[in-house]
């Protein structure tokens, strides 16, 4: 899966996991996920951590990285690419 595909996959996964009423094409990959962007909340943040672990087999090494990693779809994609298991690269 290349980066572009990963971004599209993340949009779809987030919509499904968080029961969002938006279409993938309405999400801008660089927009903030929280507050003014998609308006996600703290429970959604936990869901994103679960999503990363279940779907992409990536565990956040440090909880303090959360705000940076989950800033946008783009930052999530970058983190996944940088940390995905070698077999999936």
């Amino acid at each position: 899966m290349n980066r572009e595909q990963l971004v599209e996959d993340l949009k779809q996964q987030i919509i499904e996991q968080l029961n969002l009423q938006v279409k993938p094409e309405e999400i801008v990959a660089g927009d903030p996920l929280f507050n003014e962007g998609l308006g996600l909340d703290s429970i959604d943040a936990l869901e994103l951590i679960v999503l990363m672990q279940q779907k992409y087999r990536i565990k956040l090494a440090n909880a303090e990285e959360g705000p940076k990693v989950f800033q946008s779809i783009d930052t999530m994609a970058d983190y996944i690419i940088a940390h995905q298991p070698a077999a999936n690269k």
Partner: peptide
């Protein structure tokens, strides 16, 4: 059996 959803737990 897997990771339960925090959004369901609440």
């Amino acid at each position: 059996e897997e990771i339960p959803s925090p959004a369901v737990f609440v």
